[in-house]
């Protein structure tokens, strides 16, 4: 109980004491520097994108290489999804043909002996 009272007095003292400190003023220069940082970050971000877009499609607005990239990605994914099935089917047919050729050859050899 006595300790609680002591704690309350400490808290009251801290509030009174810390309230005597003057408020901190924000300098205009600091706000300007912080916003200049923002402009630099945004310019750098756009700069990287712009350079990449110019490599793909020099001079075009940003949406054109972005659209081209998106379309080629869709084509690639579609082809990647469909092609493995077609290749596997073709490979299976080739294997069947080869087996039937071997069987025919063996039959012919058997007839000859």
């Amino acid at each position: 109980m006595a300790q609680d009272e002591y704690g309350n007095e400490d808290a009251r003292f801290a509030v009174e004491t810390l309230s005597t400190l003057p408020p901190v003023d924000v300098s205009a220069g600091l706000a300007v520097r912080i916003l200049a940082d923002f402009d630099r970050v945004v310019a750098r971000r756009h700069g990287t994108l712009r350079r990449f877009a110019d490599l793909l499609w020099p001079g075009a607005p940003l949406w054109q290489p972005a659209t081209a990239l998106a379309l080629s990605l869709i084509c690639g994914l579609t082809a990647g999804g469909l092609l493995p099935g077609a290749v596997a089917a073709a490979a299976q047919t080739d294997q069947l043909l080869q087996i039937s050729d071997i069987v025919t050859d063996q039959d012919q050899l058997g007839d000859g002996s």
Partner: peptide, 26 residues
């Protein structure tokens, strides 16, 4: 701000700068 909106950056800065500067100064 993530989309590069400068007005949003300025609003956020003005909202928090005094408190953050007080914290750092103390």
């Amino acid at each position: 701000i993530g989309r590069g909106d400068r007005a949003a950056a300025e609003t956020l800065m003005r909202r928090h700068l005094p408190k953050l500067l007080t914290l750092a100064r103390r």
